[in-house]
Amino acid sequence: MRTATNVISLRGATKQFGGLVAVDNMDFDVTEHEVKGLIGPNGSGKSTTLNLISGALTPSDGEIVLRGTPITGLPAKDIARLGVSRTFQLVRLLPSMTVLENVMAGAVFGHRRRWGRAAEQHAMAILEKVGMARQARAHFSQLTYIDTKRVELARALAGEPEVLLLDEWLAGLNPTELQAGIELIHALRDEGRTIILVEHVMDAIRSLCDSCVVMSSGKKIAEGTPEEVLSDPDVVRAYLGDEDA
Rank of each mutant, 00 (worst) to 15 (best):
E32Y: 04
H200K: 04
R86G: 12
T98R: 00
I182G: 11
G110T: 05
I185A: 12
D242P: 00
L10T: 10
R81D: 06
A22W: 05
K129I: 00
T87C: 08
V23T: 08
A222G: 02
R117T: 06
S96E: 15
A138G: 07
Q142L: 09
T148A: 02
A187E: 15
Q89D: 08
D147H: 09
A80I: 11
E128S: 12
V214P: 06
E128P: 01
W169E: 08
V198H: 00
D244Q: 14
V130P: 03
T3E: 15
M97T: 04
S54M: 11
A107H: 06
R92V: 02
A187C: 04
S141H: 08
M202K: 13
M1L: 14
F17M: 10
R67D: 13
T3L: 14
R117I: 02
G192R: 05
L94I: 02
L173I: 04
V229I: 09
K149R: 15
E168M: 04
R237N: 06
M1H: 12
F140D: 11
H33R: 15
D61C: 02
L74C: 08
I126W: 09
T31A: 15
A138W: 11
N51L: 07
P161F: 05
Q179Y: 04
G241Y: 07
E152L: 00
A118N: 11
R117C: 00
D234L: 08
G83C: 07
N174C: 14
L240R: 05
R86L: 09
Q179M: 12
Q135E: 11
E191T: 03
P226E: 07
E183W: 03
N42R: 06
R150K: 15
A123Q: 01
T194V: 10
L178K: 15
E152V: 00
A187G: 12
S211H: 10
G19S: 11
W169N: 00
E183Y: 04
D234F: 00
D210Q: 12
S96W: 08
V236C: 07
L90W: 02
L100S: 06
T58E: 14
R189C: 03
G55M: 09
I195W: 06
E32N: 12
E160C: 01
F17G: 07
D242H: 08
V103S: 05
G116K: 01
G192W: 03
P175F: 02
T225D: 13
S96D: 14
S211I: 02
I146P: 12
G172T: 10
G68C: 05
M97D: 06
I53F: 13
A76P: 01
Q135C: 06
L10S: 10
D27M: 12
G62F: 00
A180L: 14
V151M: 13
A133I: 02
T98A: 02
A56M: 10
L166D: 04
P233E: 11
K15L: 15
V198I: 03
L178S: 15
S211D: 14
